[in-house]
Every structure is written in C-alpha cells, then in structure tokens.
Design a protein around this nucleic acid. Structure first.
Length: 441
RNA sequence: CGGGAAGUAGCUCAGCCUGGUAGAGCACUACGUUCGGGACGUAGGGGCCGGAGGUUCGAAUCCUCUCUUCCCGACCA
C-alpha cells in the first residue's frame, strides 16, 4: 500500500481523553477513533490488526476441533427468560424493543442462543461432542468504559460452547480449549498465564482466566517464575490425546491475583515468585447443566435414557487483545508489533522522493515485495526523513527498509528491525533473498 | 452505582477570576528556501466557545438546567 494513498491519520500529539499507553498509541497510530464512550471505529491499520488476531484465534479453534458459526448480535429476550438471566443480567444488558413491542437485546454473550440451537438440533448422544464458536461483536453496557478498546462497551469476542454427554467428555473439551488458548496467545507473542478463577455469574465449578503480562496491566498478579518459561504446546499437539497431563502441569503452578495472594501462605519462595501486572484476555468455564437444563438441551443416550448435556463456555476478547498486545509491546516511539499481527510486515521508506535513483529503487523493491506476497507499506510521500521514520516507528511496522541517496550510490539499502536501534546495510541484489526468507515465514 | 474533573479550530491548549467584535502552537492550502530522525519564511482557509434558558445595553466569560467525555473506586472478554 502506498502511504500517500492510505487512510492512516497519525497524530503527533495525544488526544487528552486517552490515559493509558495502548489507548494513546491506538489513537496516535491511526488504528481507531472513538465514536462514543466505549465504542470505536476501526480504521484501516487497526482493522488489519484486528483481523489478524481474529484469524489466529480462528485457526487455533479450528485446529482444536471447534466449528465456527455466526450468531446474531440482536437476540430475542425469550431464551434469556427461559434461562432466568433476563432479569439477573441487569443494566449491563442493552435492551431494545422492536416495532411490535417485542423485547430484544444486543447480545452480551450467547449461551442461551447456542444452547437453544443445540437443544433443537441435537437429539442423540451419537452427535456429541460438539464445540461451536463464533467471533462476533458483543455489547455490554459497562457503567464505566475505559482504557480504550481494553474495556469497551462494544467489543469483538470469540466465544464458544462445548456440549458433551458426561463430565469426563466435558472435561476433555475444557482441556482442549485450555491448550488452544495457550497456543493462541503464544502465537501473538504474548506471555499468558492461566489462573484458577471464580466462576462468577456464569456459574459452574471449573474455570481459568488467562492473563497476559504487561507492565501496565490493570491488576497485579503473583505467579511461579516457571510459568513464564514454559513453552506453549507446539503445533504438533494432538487434541484427541489425553490433554489432562498438560493442563495439570500448567494449572499446578502457582498463580494468583492480588486479592487472593496471601504472602504469608504462599507456596512459592523468594526469587521463584514473580510479581507482575496482567490483563485478562480469556476466560474458560465448565458449568455443567446450568443452561442445558432450563433450555432443554437433552439427548437420548445409548440405553434410551434422557441425558442433559454438560456444557462449557470459552471466551477470548479479540478486540481487547489489540490493546493488550500494545501494552505488552511498545516503547517511547510507538507500537512494536509482533510479526504475526502487524498491519504490514515491511515498511519501505523512500528518503528522497523525486530523486530518480531513489524512486526507481523504491518502486522496484516495492514491486518485488508485492510479487513475493509480502504485506508492505511504501512511504512515497514527499515528507522529511524524520517524519517518515517517526511514522513507521509509531505504527510499529516490524521491518523498515530505507532507501536513500547515501546508500543507493553503493547499491545498498538499510534494514532495521523495529525495537532495535542498529540498522544494517544490505546490497539491493541480496535483498531479494532476504525478502524470500521473510516470505517463507 | 458512589466520588471527582473537563468541554473554546482536526489535535494540544490559552482567554473566563475582573463581561466589550475569538487567540497561540501543531495540522491543513499556496509559494519559496530546505531536505538521513517530526525544518523555516511569507500569505491564507478553518469556530453558532457542547446545548437550552436566564441576568445584562452587551455573555466564551456571571447564574440555572441539561448533554457529553475523562479520572478514582465497586464490576467485567
């Protein structure tokens, strides 16, 4: 994409309403603009990041055997009345009346809708287990939206729901998601720790939160240092195998939030205990028959008996992750995107637009990048060098290629990794190889 | 939902106390000089001073109401 044509409104100054670093940088780097409290418009660069995160989440869900559906944003009150949550949910639920006076709502979550579908469509134990997910916009009318997209009222969430015949099977579904979550966060360059959690209003008796570590995180966490050093399960993980061992290893390590951590009774000693700050980016629950029972999600078992389904639900805050990644990865100059979620992998800076050598070399490299299928942003604007460097750093492009009159005389360009200071000179002839190495990853 | 702040140009803010024809920097347009880490000069464009009432000869400024946004706490992907 040519920078001159791109809608990427970067800001030198910080809008006064933004107090935390990810919010400031998202506004300054032209990723989002606030529409009203807790509601955002995603601009091209921000939307690209959001879609990349979404795609990683999707790939890992698919790999773990979940199947994607798309549920409506607007739900009928009926199913919520059946589950009893229509009254319980309170003012956080945005309630709407349609022209016929029917009670509707903007979905804050989808246990009711999906359970209703399953209750209608699945009637035999032979059709189980099932794990259905969707990545859809949710609305929760938070009293106090804040922190930009980290605590918006409207947010993109991956939520899924597992349906099993018995506890053993449900536990396996839970474990699959546990492992898939570890992989999902790792692919985004995040260190995520699972933490045993209260089940809260969703109910149930088995639950983990996934906390991403970031200095600016909203809550303090204490954990065993070993957790930070454990590699996430690899690509080769077999989801049909018994994952209980893996889950046990991870969940047996100490991790607790500020409130629950008791320094006097902490099993982890001295240096092995890490005090950090974190952001909750996922939450998984097993809650048995809490919804299947009121909504009639019942199948017939092998002996002809009626069996109420065992359920779990699993959520990842997709839009929140954009903010969380920035919180975890930035410096004074701007965002430092991990390659896997960067809006563009390469930023090409033509230092002297109008100089025929620089223009020709830049155009050539830009064409090569595009031919290699590498997402590149080409700064072809007639701006000063400083402005271009600052912009690339702010937006957080992982690789910067600088083409300037100084190097071009010797047939060289400069390559810089975002987040590292030194630039290396590379001969233009060799750049092709460098590019193909990039393209392979 | 309790407590606290702020709304003036696209952004950051001054002006308000002590009422008298709306300002600066950045951004934007044109021209010129510059040009390897957010240049400089000259000339421009852009405002119902959040909204509604009130006081006054006169309100960005004083009073009342209202809307919006942000911050701290309780709650949450």
């Amino acid at each position: 994409m040519r920078r001159s044509q791109l809608f990427l409104p970067t800001l030198k100054e910080t809008p006064s309403e933004a107090k935390i670093v990810s919010h400031r940088l998202m506004l300054r780097a032209g990723l989002v603009r606030q529409s009203s409290a807790g509601i955002y418009t995603w601009l091209p660069a921000g939307y690209r990041v959001l879609r990349k995160i979404e795609e990683i989440v999707r790939e890992e869900q698919d790999r773990a055997g979940a199947q994607e559906v798309l549920m409506p944003t607007i739900q009928s009150a009926e199913v919520w009345q059946k589950s009893g949550r229509y009254d319980d949910y309170g003012k956080e639920m945005l309630r709407i009346e349609d022209r016929h006076g029917r009670e509707m709502l903007f979905g804050p979550t989808a246990e009711e809708v999906i359970t209703d579908i399953v209750a209608n469509e699945i009637n035999s134990y032979r059709d189980l287990p099932k794990n259905l997910y969707n990545i859809q916009w949710k609305f929760r009318d938070e009293v106090r939206p804040r922190f930009g997209v980290m605590r918006g009222r409207e947010f993109l969430m991956k939520d899924n729901y597992s349906f099993d015949i018995d506890y053993e099977s449900a536990r396996h579904s839970y474990n699959k998601m546990f492992v898939a979550y570890l992989r999902t966060y790792a692919r985004m360059g995040l260190t995520a720790i699972p933490m045993a959690a209260d089940t809260g209003p969703i109910g149930g008796d088995l639950s983990h939160e996934f906390i991403v570590l970031a200095e600016t995180g909203e809550s303090a966490v204490f954990c065993d240092r070993a957790l930070l050093e454990m590699p996430a399960p690899g690509h080769e993980v077999d989801y049909d195998s018994d994952l209980g061992g893996t889950v046990e290893i991870w969940s047996n390590h100490y991790a607790a939030t500020d409130e629950k951590h008791d320094p006097d009774n902490c099993p982890i000693a001295g240096d092995q205990l890490v005090k950090a700050r974190g952001i909750e980016v996922g939450h998984i629950f097993y809650f048995g028959t809490k919804y299947s029972e009121p909504l009639g999600a019942i199948v017939q078992g092998p002996d002809g008996q009626q069996i109420t389904l065992e359920m779990g639900s699993y959520g990842i805050g997709v839009s929140r992750l954009v903010g969380a990644i920035i919180e975890a990865s930035h410096d004074d100059a701007g965002i430092i995107w991990p390659e896997s979620v960067a809006p563009w992998l390469v930023g090409l800076i033509n230092l002297k637009v109008g100089d025929s050598d620089c223009d020709a070399a830049s155009e050539k490299i830009y064409a090569d990048l595009r031919a290699a299928g590498i997402e590149a942003i080409y700064d072809d604007r007639d701006e000063r060098a400083g402005a271009k460097f600052a912009d690339m750093d702010l937006v957080g492009i992982p690789w910067q290629i600088t083409i300037g009159p100084r190097g071009i005389k010797d047939g060289k360009v400069e390559v810089k990794r975002r987040g590292e200071d030194e630039k290396s000179e590379i001969a233009i002839e060799v750049l092709g190889d460098w590019i193909s190495e990039r393209a392979a990853s």
